[in-house]
Design a binder for these strands. Sequence first.
DNA 1: GGATACATACTCGGATAGCTAATGTCCGAGTGTGTCAGG
DNA 2: CCTGACACACTCGGACATTAGCTATCCGAGTATGTATCC
Lengths: 161, 161
Amino acid sequence: MRMSEGVEWAVHTCLNMTWLPGGEAISTARLAAFYGLPAAYLNKQLQALSRAGILSSVSGPRGGFRLARDPESITLLDVVVAIEGPDEAFRCEQLLQRGPGADPATDYRHSCLVSQSMRQADLAWRRELAARTLAALKADVERAHPDAPALVANRFLEGKR
Amino acid sequence: MRMSEGVEWAVHTCLNMTWLPGGEAISTARLAAFYGLPAAYLNKQLQALSRAGILSSVSGPRGGFRLARDPESITLLDVVVAIEGPDEAFRCEQLLQRGPGADPATDYRHSCLVSQSMRQADLAWRRELAARTLAALKADVERAHPDAPALVANRFLEGKR
DNA sequence: GGATACATACTCGGATAGCTAATGTCCGAGTGTGTCAGG
DNA sequence: CCTGACACACTCGGACATTAGCTATCCGAGTATGTATCC
């Protein structure tokens, strides 16, 4: 069980975006250059974030992406779901359906106690991620590294006409 | 992010084992037949459980697997870790190391706040799984389906000489 | 000088290869069982 | 009848194909910008 590397890229990229002037969009190429990432593949992740309503995209020159919502209303869960998809990690294949004494009419994804236990753990995981907003993360980073916002902003604005 | 299907097989199989007479081992073929699973592949999962000390294996005729510990001391986390491996889902690639202002001596897997948030969620997930023992699961199933233990035991003993 | 039409360059967006890891299968090493011969 | 050795069949264990999903890349559609031309 392994989470896509794109999640890490997406979270860090969204976080960096909170330190940029909100009005204008920033291109994939520039976002990718910040960490030396492959631009085309990062673009793929940003597309997913856009489809999820986390980012908004604008085409053409001076185009790119920007946060579509306030950082207060963007959680880590939102980002993870946007990249990884909504399905939970444990996918009940209804093994009980293939065993003896099975009832064809029963949906074992709900009634199976193993499935329930796994879902409970999954929910705990999601609860933690949902409790962590981009704004809170931003605030914590600024507390720990007060110079980070300026560093990020300067790096993005340099060479900009 | 998707958990291996082997986890579902492993949990249900271990659970079934709690309803069998503890003394003797039961072969992979018989365990697989219970749910119509491919025996060789299930064997692979049982090997992993054996390496993790959850099952003990015995070769030769009358051989097979049996629970190596009391169901009270086997948690869902133990089974998941045995199959999926000990690594957490989110693997920090230390993106910050490749950005501006990085300190080559810093281990960002610990200091990066994104990584910390992800780890916190992962720990919540593990906590839930660790709190769920095989014995508790067994008891809940017996409460909901009082005839399940006999059903399982009969199915496994039938055709046995 | 101002407005308009146009060419241009830049951006996202989805369609297309490459690669790692999970899935599924196979055969060999080891071992307890049952049998058969001998005493 | 009892003992011992032996052949056998059954089991785990790891090595070998196959498939699905993540990773990476490329090219086309669309658009705002800047320019040149015309009024």
